[in-house]
Design a protein around this nucleic acid. Structure first.
Lengths: 243, 243
DNA sequence: GCGCGCTCTTGACCTACATCAAGCTTTTTT
DNA sequence: AAAAAAGCTTGATGTAGGTCAAGAGCGCGC
């Protein structure tokens, strides 16, 4: 089957050798701790574009760390409405929502070809008990996730459409930069539709704002390729001097 | 000083004897574990209405479990905009956002006279390492918090004003019920202004929706006292058959 | 190479909600 | 108890952004 073939483990790279180690669960670990983590992690399962890592309602089996590509998480209502709740970059965790009652509330979907490392729930508690460094880093990552979602609540609750987009672009810019990519020039792996949904806007509105930012010389847009031309103005729009 | 007087510890009740134990960190613990938790928790610090538990930017010193009353958390922008990110009922945790970088991102403010139990950060890691039951319950509570925030993203991103209010009222109803209070009749400890802010609406809009729900026989409203008259319709509004 | 189906953009119009403004009710202060 | 200040509701009006509709660009299979 297609799905099964795709999920064959790719060649393993140890956490110690992984370029993302300082953004991921392995941050701050000594060699012995990293070795233990390596033994427990299932590395680099690959997913195609739009392929699901897990669905809402499924029993949680693992926590996922994005290795390459991107993962979006989304929730739905009975009415068929859908809200994208996050875009997850390499080094970020996906699936923590399942801890609430052992079932995932959200769906996780690959955006473009994506590889992830899995930490099985069976191992999770053992790791938390025995590896202090991972426990600490996990709490840090959970805190960041909570902070990020609160920032989105602020965006959706209080900001205008252009401010919301600026907030998202700055967040992506910053996160790409941390990963060694350009903070000013990057590619969006998701369609406008997804961006608009994430920002609580209609795709048409989002498109108009892209155009407006382009006219005003804040942003170069060519399809999904972006270049931020005027960072100060972008920051001003997002009401965020530090980010 | 006033603030200091208020923060004198009230009479201690053990976690084992606390009526909230099955909603709080102590859920599922055996007697020995509960005893340890008791030794570590600082019990029942009291706050007045509008008094801050902590401010944004302050170093995290503890995680707080609401014991009585209510706590709202909110974040602000440079521009002075403010978004309430949560209303926290007895048994719920406040302050997890501080794990991101040891500083709180949000502010936590008492709504009405409120008492909280504190678990100091210095003790936190020890507890997580040595008391499996607390570690498990903590992860459960974190998962619930993440789920709840994702639900709010859905509300703010996709729902109409009346649907957002219905969602909030059902959430409160359910949570009061879990605490042994009526699911249909309860009192809101916060002003309309706060509710509106939380829902991303103007206070005037919120007021109009309360009036409309009243006219339609869905809700009895008298100031901050509410009674849900037509639960099925309320659920329908919230697009949420289970909640 | 050509047609088909996406994705994205732009325009015209409309509506849900914000804003502004006034009065009313409840609480707090003196 | 009176006065002042909050909090809440209701009405009138304005607007940001949604919806509907029509292309335009672009990749893809045949």
């Amino acid at each position: 089957m297609k799905a099964i073939r795709q999920k064959e483990a790719a060649d393993s790279i140890s956490c110690a050798a992984c370029s993302l180690v300082n953004l991921c669960l392995g941050k701050g670990l000594d060699q012995a701790e990293l070795d233990k983590l390596d033994q427990i992690i299932d590395k680099k399962t690959q997913y195609d574009n739009e392929e699901y890592l897990f669905h809402s309602g499924e029993t949680m089996t693992a926590v996922y760390a994005v290795r390459s590509g991107m993962v979006k998480t989304l929730i739905t209502t009975e009415g068929g409405a859908e809200q994208i709740t996050g875009f997850h970059l390499p080094g970020e965790l996906v699936g923590l929502d399942g801890f609430g009652d052992d079932r995932h509330l959200c769906n996780a979907v690959a955006l473009g070809t994506t590889t992830v490392c899995e930490l099985k729930v069976e191992s999770f508690d053992w790791v938390c008990e025995h590896i202090q460094g991972i426990r600490a880093q996990l709490m840090r990552m959970i805190g960041e996730e909570l902070n990020h979602e609160q920032g989105m609540l602020l965006a959706l609750g209080q900001m205008k459409a252009d401010e919301r987009l600026a907030t998202l672009l700055l967040s992506l810019s910053e996160r790409y930069k941390k990963r060694g990519f350009s903070a000013l020039e990057f590619n969006l792996p998701m369609p406008r539709h997804d961006l608009a949904n994430y920002l609580g806007l209609a795709p048409e509105t989002l498109s108009r704002i892209f155009s407006k930012m382009h006219e005003e010389g804040i942003l170069d847009v060519s399809g999904r390729d972006l270049r931020i031309l005027d960072m100060p103005r972008m920051r001003k729009l997002a009401h965020c001097s530090q980010c």
